[in-house]
Write a protein that binds this DNA or RNA. Sequence first.
DNA 1: CCCCTTTGTTACCGTCTGGTAACCATGTGT
DNA 2: ACACATGGTTACCAGACGGTAACAAAGGGG
Lengths: 195, 195
Amino acid sequence: MSARLPAAERRPQLLDVALEVFSRTGFHETSMNDIAEAAGVTKPVLYQHFPSKRALFLELLREMGGRLREDVGKATAGAAGPRQQVEAGFEAYFRWVTENRGGFQVLFAGDTRRDREFLAEVLKVETDIADAIAELIVVDGLSPERRRLLAYGIVGISEVTSRHWLADDLDLGPTELAAQVAELAWAGLRGLRPA
Amino acid sequence: MSARLPAAERRPQLLDVALEVFSRTGFHETSMNDIAEAAGVTKPVLYQHFPSKRALFLELLREMGGRLREDVGKATAGAAGPRQQVEAGFEAYFRWVTENRGGFQVLFAGDTRRDREFLAEVLKVETDIADAIAELIVVDGLSPERRRLLAYGIVGISEVTSRHWLADDLDLGPTELAAQVAELAWAGLRGLRPA
DNA sequence: CCCCTTTGTTACCGTCTGGTAACCATGTGT
DNA sequence: ACACATGGTTACCAGACGGTAACAAAGGGG
């Protein structure tokens, strides 16, 4: 059906299609056949480029997680003060989410949390961001663990608002969304009282 | 191997075992055989009490989700003011999480978000709580949708901090945890500026 | 024009899993 | 002691899925 493609083009195409299918059906409910078919190709072609279903999925997770971390990292690095870091971080996050809906689904709305290797990739993103946030908490009398705990809370805000945003198709751009949510987060962080 | 049990006792036992196994392995990676074996029984016994794997899983979701909603609802209903509602709600939530680790895993760390029916049960919990929180936001100039958006943010805080709490085995009781997190959330909500 | 590499297909295997049919065991009321 | 409802087991089926071996077709360089 589809034209022949050199490996250097076939591989990324397969990754692309796989992301789309996985993001709709999830890891377990997606068969290698489904992916191959969606790519207009047969199963063995898939196995010419990826050694196993897990490996294919993992590669997607790594690529998506890496890009997200990168985007958020760059955005916060280029911000003037802590308040701006929070807002820029959220904006980069939400922008990434709209531009990579599939990636978001695969990373945070999938079966990711049941598998050690899959989970590791998700945690890389979460802890990375949480660590950055933890450094913005300047209140006295808070142990590092508690700082990190609250930082994970902020990460939770972005995850769940993103899901709600996508699912209910809210009429908001990433920038507006970020402004709104950053205000909540920043007010929360700033309003902490010393122990 | 195990003694014979009347149906009225076998059924709850099976539910109990199923929750434990599902919470460790997840829906897809758990076979009916695994559950039967863990209960000291064979597969057909399971099918005498539950029509299908899905039905069994759904019953667990409903039971767990119902209990969580109930606990949080009761706690917030008995609180004096909004600030106390937030804290009492979080405490009930975290208390439920420690006392129902399996339930938490099954509801929020599973393959739940890929299946319409499963997802519906999770959303029942999330929207229920989010709606309650949305009513506590009193800032002028915020549309109901934005209020709900922020409310989902607060829900996100509890979900992700819970995961971090369980995974890293933090040395904190539910009450302390709630106090800490409620402060973050409340400060965030109170600190919102009018548009 | 032919060979050889690259790309793709057909056909298959072994295994696992949800689900069921048919059969045994146990104990209680009469 | 016996019948009968209840609880439990063995053995199996059909389908799906990950993965592979063996083979076909395309196409470019000598």
